[in-house]
Write a protein that binds this DNA or RNA. Structure first.
Lengths: 104, 104
DNA sequence: ATCGATGTTCGTCGATAATCGATGAACTGT
DNA sequence: ACAGTTCATCGATTATCGACGAACATCGAT
């Protein structure tokens, strides 16, 4: 697996971040990651094809939200801690609002 | 002018709201509206065609963020106060992060 | 060297987005 | 009645999105 691209946080726009968070599947990924740990990409079972999940992971990386660390044939995904320095409070606010009825 | 549609806030999803806020032109509109007053739709000069601005206004309405009140041939636009009850803190957070460099 | 597992990339599809100019609808003022 | 203003809508264009399967790359294990 080629090492994925992680943009500098300073080049990530608010539109990029909000665009990444506007999709419910991607928010579901982020919600899992808020435990602060790394998760295997393959452990997300969100009802989409593997290639689709890979696409969403790319969007999250480009939005500066997540970090992907290849490990052999697998891939560990985690939140980028610096994201909250770039956009303070955004993740907490968005995820806090992401209740059952608001989710779709 | 036909009266524009304003969705019930309970039917507006977080994805709708975030999608509306993900566009910099629309955030520029919202930023103006945070003075709490009504503004004429024609007073926004954001460098896009009139029809394009109308399109953005529609997105903001559909995201539950703004209210449009026709008045003769013109249209007064304002924030929907209930939006903050539906998504508490979202507008304040997003607009607070919308600095010059993050804007695009 | 081959195989299976895991993700990424590619090509494609239908749907939606953002933009524009042109047209239409509704109102105002003369 | 007519002309002008203001905004919405239409039609077209171009781009992007989310989805899929298929193909590809990389690695570990056999």
């Amino acid at each position: 697996m080629r090492a994925p691209d992680h943009p500098q946080l300073s080049t990530v726009s608010l539109s990029d971040a909000l665009g990444a968070l506007a999709d419910p599947t991607r928010r579901a990924v982020v919600r899992v990651l808020t435990d602060g740990r790394e998760h295997l990409a393959g452990d997300f079972d969100l009802g989409v094809a593997q290639s689709t999940l890979s696409h969403h992971m790319k969007k999250l990386r480009q939005g500066g939200i997540t970090h992907s660390r290849p490990d052999g044939t697998r891939c560990w995904v985690s939140l980028r801690p610096e994201f909250d320095e770039r956009f303070p409070g955004l993740l907490r606010t968005v995820l806090g609002l992401d209740t059952e009825q608001a989710r779709s």
